[in-house]
Design a protein around this nucleic acid. Structure first.
Lengths: 188, 188
DNA sequence: TTGACAAGTGGAGACGATCTCCATATTTTC
DNA sequence: GAAAATATGGAGATCGTCTCCACTTGTCAA
């Protein structure tokens, strides 16, 4: 994965500047609205440099996306090793909603990203997927959840919550969906 | 809404040609991959004509989208007046999955459309939303479903099913989510 | 230090898609 | 059937994306 490519000192810095600015736009939800050239300028970098580090907008997006996902995964693992399985799952799902609620722009960006490049993102999001699946599986093992439905359904619900980010009643409906899904998973 | 604008006879025809070709691309899932100029050509129309009828790609998309939605609404109403409320809801949701499954390209197009122009589509999708909400409300009135969660949560689940269109296990997971949501709605 | 080579930079301009504009063609009206 | 109103199409302006390379900066051996 990282065979042997010691990046030169200044290159390292530019790359980070790009990444930082990208994350900023990500959170602001303006990532896809910005001209790519302007973006380079904003990060204090020439267009050429931008394109060398990140050949496409999607590649840049994915780099940021990975970091975002890593944080969520840590959270999931932490919960998994602290609470009983069902509670861990519930906490994680509630936390996910809280997180998106506190970062509306990010929700918007993610929705766009998913729609246009769902395939490309598969690798990056696999870690998150595994974390969620593990939580669900653990709860199933404990006998607390039905066996006939797997974590994929939960992933889909999360997709929906992200995708529907601009519904007026988003928060209420998202909470409702989580409640319904959790109860649905518990029913025989 | 339609104050007074009797379109000239030939204009009517061109407009329809555009709409027909657009629907074709919609179903094929290539709507957003096609150059807009080429699209005009494909429909046997000049670029200028295309732009006069539909100033933006999104406006054209919405016109097609409306038709698509109308069909789904009819289906929902029909079920609502034929079956007991809960069964009507279940049938509709299952039917929705069947429909997307049979029109994968359309699912892809819709997901893209929703992500980029969710706001713009609100008006067009309101009819569908009302239909779903009516089904849910009717079931709640009958006392068959819990009162503390409204149809918005169901809409979100549908969003998720559409948005996650390219998951390998899509069909299974979508069915699972519907099952979970229905059971969750039934639990006290 | 310093010279020489590798690694990285930035932005001018090529490219390609979107969209405008208007001379021309078609329909409608009287 | 001719004048007025309406619609057409496509050449070319516009604007964002991306490439290319003359130049700058960092690295390292002597």
């Amino acid at each position: 994965m990282t065979p042997a490519k010691p990046l030169r000192a200044d290159a390292q810095r530019k790359r980070q500047a790009l990444l930082d600015k990208a994350r900023e736009m990500f959170d602001a939800g303006s990532f896809f609205d910005l001209r790519f050239d302007d973006f380079a300028c904003l990060a204090g970098v020439g267009v050429g440099t931008l394109y060398r580090h990140f050949p496409t907008r999607e590649e840049l997006a994915e780099a940021v996306f990975r970091e975002e996902v890593a944080a969520l995964c840590d959270c999931a693992r932490q919960l998994g090793s602290t609470l009983p399985a069902v509670e861990a799952l519930a906490s994680f799902l509630r936390g996910f909603v809280d997180y998106l609620d506190a970062h509306r722009g990010l929700a918007r960006t993610l929705a766009t990203l998913m729609a246009s490049r769902a395939g490309t993102l598969a690798e990056g999001s696999q870690a998150l997927e595994r974390a969620v699946l593990d939580l669900v599986d653990a709860a199933v093992q404990e006998g607390a959840l039905r066996r006939d439905v797997d974590g994929g359904a939960v992933m889909m619900a999360l997709h929906g919550i992200g995708a529907a980010h601009d519904r007026p009643q988003w928060r209420v409906e998202a909470d409702g969906l989580i409640t319904v899904v959790l109860d649905g998973l518990r029913s025989s």
